[in-house]
Nucleic acid binder design. Structure first.
Length: 456
RNA sequence: GGCUCUAUCGUCUAACGGUUAGGACGAGUGCUUUUCAAGCACUAAAUUCGGGUUCGACUCCCGGUAGAGUCACCA
């Protein structure tokens, strides 16, 4: 029988968590879930100077939002006694020793604990990279602890993975060169060697590793703040450096759990592509139920709009107000942007505009152009529109009926824009807007007629 | 610089000795009852370079080149 799978993701709370870490966490999570194993989250805060609880809280919030639920949680600063025990044993067994030092930098001790390097070649098998051999002689007798109560990263990691019975160490490729020294420590404390899988790095546009200080790609929690969908982000991260083989690109978390295959992980690093994330997010939004979409759009709308929103019968449909907003965004946060640009204002109050703008703009390249039209002609057209719309009953004031009525008029003109544009502009006050029929329906008969009247 | 790793369209990737080298994002063009958005269709776009091995190489081997990572009393 195989041992029960145990994976772990071990971030250090020394800065804002970056998106690259999401994928490491995700792959550990996927692998454990798929194998019915355990997924451990471990906060590596042995560096007292730089570790901050606020950063830990940040990634805790992030994983909660993403739905990457861990089975166990550990904090290394809670385990100092454990490390001390192993440290003492290593010293007793001659694998480590106290070393007198001359401090080179401020804060450095004059006595540290060094690992007695046996200076040998270590070969380990990597599930992604294959066999890797490194001569550890270059490492020298490296420092494993400042003192008995201040272990350093490599020591703490090895002890924790051993005690927590971690079977698979899945982490970023930047750790690959460090692996041999961790193996050395394992051998010294008699720990079994876990299976390693070093993931390709996620790079920024400059092809450099994503880091906590990177400005070009925002910190992970930003994606929550900007209204991305957790599953979309996860889906996107999964597809950077891994691919199940088919042509499907949109996956839910449970599909990812089923399809994940560590042998299909890429070797080379991949650049983080924000446009693709944007597209994928929209794809996941389309998977939401109408009720979920309504709830989210309403939640992201400013309060004053939310309270005054015109709820026509068409409200929740593709051609209703929600539909209009939905097709213009690819993440919830975009709502704030279109609101800021004033693109929604006309639904809430009659637009102000210069009357000349009612004139259908001359088509570029068209010989006849729009010069023939003047305000009188436009005014005449709008009057006819009003007459036609008057005839519609309040209950029949729907997109289809309005369109049928107006198109008859529009088709009589040299160009449909001669009537369609002034109507659209009178209703919206914008050069670019949804089509006039939809706007009219959303506004309702009274408001539509009043705005047209005003235009005249 | 030493060590380690990597290399298919601009980007993410498929093809694990035999394909007109496929898909997606993005871009461009066009269509769709004015515009915008959305949608649809089409187009352009890649095997880093040399050598081998083989009937046949994106695929295997060697070398060059390029890129990345790592060499802390950080993780």
């Amino acid at each position: 029988m195989d041992k029960k799978v145990v994976t772990r993701f071990a971030p250090s709370p020394t800065g804002h968590f970056h998106v690259g870490g999401i994928r490491s966490a995700l792959f550990n999570f996927l692998f454990a879930r798929q194998k019915g194993g355990t997924y451990i989250l471990r906060s590596e805060d042995t560096d007292k100077e730089r570790s901050k609880r606020e950063y830990e809280n940040e990634f805790l919030e992030l994983f909660d939002w993403l739905g990457l639920k861990h089975d166990q949680f550990f904090r290394q600063s809670d385990r100092i006694k454990v490390y001390r025990k192993y440290l003492q044993k290593m010293i007793d067994d001659g694998f480590a020793y106290l070393s007198k030092e001359t401090p080179k930098e401020e804060g450095e001790r004059d006595e540290v604990i060094r690992f007695k390097n046996p200076n040998k070649k270590i070969t380990f098998h990597d599930l992604v990279l294959g066999d890797i051999t490194v001569d550890t002689t270059d490492l020298g007798d490296f420092v494993i602890a400042r003192d008995m109560d201040e272990p350093l990263y490599h020591l703490a990691v090895v002890i924790d993975d051993f005690e927590m019975e971690v079977t698979h160490v899945i982490r970023g490729q930047e750790h690959a060169p460090n692996t041999p020294r961790q193996i050395l420590i394992q051998e010294a404390i008699g720990a079994p060697r876990p299976l390693y899988a070093h993931l390709p790095l996620i790079l920024n546009k400059e092809r450099a590793k994503l880091s906590k200080r990177d400005e070009s790609v925002p910190g992970a929690i930003e994606y929550k703040k900007r209204g991305y969908l957790p599953e979309a982000l996860l889906n996107f991260m999964a597809l950077n450096g891994w691919n199940p083989g088919g042509e499907q690109e949109v996956f839910t978390l449970s599909e990812l759990i089923k399809k994940f295959d560590i042998s299909k992980v890429q070797k080379g690093g991949g650049i983080f592509n924000p446009e693709k994330l944007e597209w994928l997010n929209k794809e996941h939004m389309k998977l939401l139920t109408p009720a979920e979409i309504e709830k989210n759009i309403l939640a992201w709308l400013p309060e004053e709009m939310r309270n005054k929103i015109p709820k026509r019968p068409s409200f929740g449909t593709k051609d209703g107000l929600l539909g209009i907003i939905f097709e213009r965004i690819s993440k919830w946060g975009d709502i704030k942007e279109i609101v800021a640009k004033g693109e929604l204002d006309f639904f809430f109050k009659a637009p102000e505009y210069e009357k000349e703008k009612l004139i259908f703009p001359a088509q570029s390249g068209s010989a006849s152009g729009g010069k023939n039209f003047n305000l009188e002609k436009i005014s005449q057209n709008i009057k006819e529109v009003i007459n036609v719309l008057q005839a519609l009953e309040e209950k029949d004031f729907t997109k289809e009926n309005i369109k049928n009525a107006l198109m008859i008029l529009a088709d009589k003109m040299d160009s449909r824009g001669e009537v369609l544009h002034p109507v659209r502009f009178a209703l919206s006050g914008l050069d670019k807007s949804p089509d006039p029929f939809i706007i009219a329906e959303i506004l309702g008969k009274n408001e539509t007629l009043s705005r047209l009247q005003k235009a005249i």
